[in-house]
Every structure is written in C-alpha cells, then in structure tokens.
Write a protein that binds this DNA or RNA. Structure first.
Length: 300
DNA sequence: AAAGGATGCAACCGCACCCAT
DNA sequence: TATGGGTGCGGTTGCATCCTT
C-alpha cells in the first residue's frame, strides 16, 4: 500500500487556487487541442490537476466568452424568474444568461437572494419568498432595466461596460421570452420547488402571467424595447429613491413611496394567493426590504 | 490600528447520468 | 446486461477580502 504508484500519483495532484502558469498552460493546451476529454487533457498537458479541476477552471474562469463583473438588473431578473420556474437548476438557468456560469448564478443566489430571505426570516425556497420577490423585488428590477435602457440610449458614451450587440440581443431575447411566458409556481403544498411540478406548463398556479407583467410594466411605466442595447452599467444615478446602479453589486430596496404604490396596487391582488395569517403585512415587508437597501448603501 | 466577524467567490466533492465496450 | 470511464450538476468548503467594533 504505502508508496504505491497510485498513492504517489494522488499526492502529486495539485489542489487549491490555480497559478498563472497553470492557467496559461491550460489555455495553451486547449487552444491547440480543443476542450473535452478532460482526464487525458490533464495528463497530456503536464498539469498536475485532475480532469475535473481542469474542466471547472476552464468553464468557470478561463473560457474566453465568460462575462466578468456583477450581474445586471436584467440578469438578476432572469435568475429570479427562472429559479422560480426551475428551482436550483443552475446550469439550465445559466443557459439563458450568456457568459454567466452556473457557479456564478448559484453563488449569486446563495449570497444575495438567500441573504434577503434570511433578513425577512423567510425560507428562500418557500412559496412565500417567491411571491415576495415577485411583488417587491422583481418589479424593481424591471424598473432598473428600463432606467438603464434609457441611460444607455441617451448617453452611450458613459458606459464602460458593454456587451456586443449580438450578445445583448440574445440576452434581451431570453429576457423577453421569460417575460412573455407564463411562470408557474411550485406546488403550494411543498416548501421546495419540485421540478415535475414547476416545469409543468399547464400548472394553474401562476401568480404572474404575461398579462400581469404587462400590467406591471404599465403601472410602472416600464417598456422593454427588444432592439435597444440595455447592457450598460457603469453609470451611477441617484434618484429620489436613494438608488444607484453601477458595475458594483446591485441589491434591491424600496422606499416608502414605492411600497405605497406596490402595496396598494391591485395589479397582483387577484393573482397572488396569500396564505392568511402567515404573512408579514406589506408594510413590514416593504420596510424590511428598504432597510436592507439602506444598510447596503451605508455600508459602502 | 488591530482583531474578530461577515461576506463573496473560486474550487472541491460526491453523486448521477450517458455511452462505449 | 454489467462495467467502467467521462462528463455534468448541485451542494459544500476554504480562503481572501471587506467590514465592524
């Protein structure tokens, strides 16, 4: 046993952070030979890494079309929407966000979205939280998308982060497809979305139909122009909501006026089925979100 | 300024699936 | 059909950085 070839090989395997030399070696090898067959690639390239490690490093970090930087409001909206539809199917969700990896989306969900859930003391997988996102967070994201759309069209030179037109159109297409698609909810009896339930297109429990989204857009003066490049975020804007969008992290928050508008609107009232006696009221939720945002801004 | 805690992200691990043999 | 290698996915961990006190 001790000192066997296998054991020595195991000990030779490097783990942990990749060095620049390793990255260069992997990039060079894949440039010459292409990706795939990761185990043999790992051996042939001279890297003392497992095939899995090489694959992960390439797909999550080194691949040329990986988009760096923080998620845009549009991308965040897509993530929230698709997660409510598919659950923790990160790779499937990543397919709709060009340049973003499943790992990145998963991290976003765990660090940002679940953080909000913790603040609200709501299970992030619960229907209640999904509804909270839909009522308070997603409309806000839509608004941000619209604002950025205006910004990018009016002052494109202010952008330091932009995507190619084709990529942006692809992103917009995906975004609009989601926007135009019914979004079934997980079964109310389950605290965690089950794929068989949430992927059922015939589900009758949708709380936010395309119609309601259009109502939402109308009520928020939101118009999504599919031909407009809206991937443009480095412009800081300060408005009455004490909000800013830049290429740093973007969290949601709501001021009291927003909450009045959202909380008293009946646009979703007929569609959102709220478990009686089991909810914070809208004002509480609103204040909680608002406070989170406040904390966020002041902590910067 | 320093120490401890919190956060975000890259990387690892285990499992499941697919496919060739 | 059984088996083993290759691959992909989701959950988890470790660590660097940031923040708070």
């Amino acid at each position: 046993m001790g000192g066997s070839c296998n054991e020595r090989n195991f000990n030779d395997i490097r783990r942990g952070p990749w060095t620049l030399e390793e990255d260069n070696l992997l990039i060079h090898y894949i440039t010459c030979h292409g990706e795939g067959r990761w185990n043999s690639l790992a051996k042939s390239s001279g890297l003392k890494r497992t095939g899995k490690s090489c694959r992960l490093r390439w797909l999550n970090y080194l691949k040329p079309d990986i988009k760096r930087g923080n998620l845009t409001p549009q991308e965040q909206f897509l993530i929230l929407e698709l997660h409510s539809k598919w659950g923790n199917r990160w790779s499937k969700i990543a397919c709709h966000l060009p340049g973003r990896t499943d790992n990145e989306i998963k991290n976003y969900w765990r660090t940002r979205v679940q953080k909000q859930a913790r603040h609200l003391k709501i299970d992030a997988n619960s229907k209640r939280f999904v509804e909270t996102l839909r009522r308070f967070w997603m409309p806000r994201l839509l608004e941000k998308v619209k604002q950025n759309s205006s910004l990018s069209s009016s002052s494109p030179s202010s952008s330091t982060y932009s995507t190619s037109t084709s990529e942006t159109n692809q992103n917009n297409l995906s975004f609009l497809q989601v926007e135009q698609t019914l979004m079934p909810l997980p079964s109310s009896s389950s605290s965690s979305p089950q794929p068989s339930e949430i992927e059922n297109p015939n589900s009758s429990s949708s709380i936010l139909s395309s119609d309601s989204i259009s109502k939402l857009s109308e009520s928020s003066n939101i118009y999504i122009n599919p031909n407009r490049d809206i991937a443009c975020y480095n412009s800081s804007l300060q408005n009455n909501d004490c909000y800013h969008v830049d290429n740093h992290n973007f969290d949601m928050g709501f001021n009291h006026l927003d909450m009045q508008a959202i909380g008293t609107s009946d646009m979703l009232a007929s569609e959102v089925q709220v478990a009686e006696g089991d909810w914070m009221n809208d004002a509480d939720l609103a204040n909680t979100f608002w406070n989170i945002d406040e904390l966020w801004h002041f902590s910067k």
